[in-house]
């Protein structure tokens, strides 16, 4: 006999953010580190002023640029948060609320803060 329905979990919210962050980081993470961390500063294959202050500012002042930066930063955090949350849970570290605040909480703060800063830069 089918048993009484179990209480619905809120996990889908965090799992979808985790999945989105995982997909983004798999597609763009390594490339971003390569471009912003090595190629652009060394001027390899990219003009020396590609990541100059003016260019970076112009990028962040465009709404599409803002969206890209916001997605990359916040979703990477949500991805890491889910992994760390489950690791802490498996290791029985902290209470469940403590674990959630430490992982999802940090990701939520970063998401809001990044949005705030991007808006503060203006258009």
């Amino acid at each position: 006999m089918p048993h009484a329905p179990e209480k619905r979990s809120n996990a889908p919210i965090f799992w979808l953010l985790f999945g989105a962050g995982g997909t983004l980081s798999a597609l763009f993470g390594v490339g971003l580190i390569l471009v912003t961390g090595f190629l652009a500063p060394q001027g390899i294959g990219i003009g020396p002023d590609a990541l100059s202050y003016e260019n970076a500012l112009a990028f962040t002042q465009n709404w599409l640029g803002k969206a890209a930066i916001w997605a990359v930063i916040s979703l990477f955090f949500w991805h890491a948060a889910e992994r760390l949350y489950l690791t802490l849970k498996d290791m029985h570290v902290f209470s469940d609320l403590g674990r959630r605040l430490l992982t999802y909480g940090v990701a939520a703060v970063v998401t809001v803060a990044t949005a705030g800063l991007l808006l503060a830069i203006g258009f």
Partner: peptide
């Protein structure tokens, strides 16, 4: 629908890591 209701909780699919 019936089966999703049986496994949509913390001890259902979400218990898997």
């Amino acid at each position: 629908a019936l089966r999703i209701d049986a496994v949509h909780g913390e001890d259902g699919v979400w218990g898997c890591t």
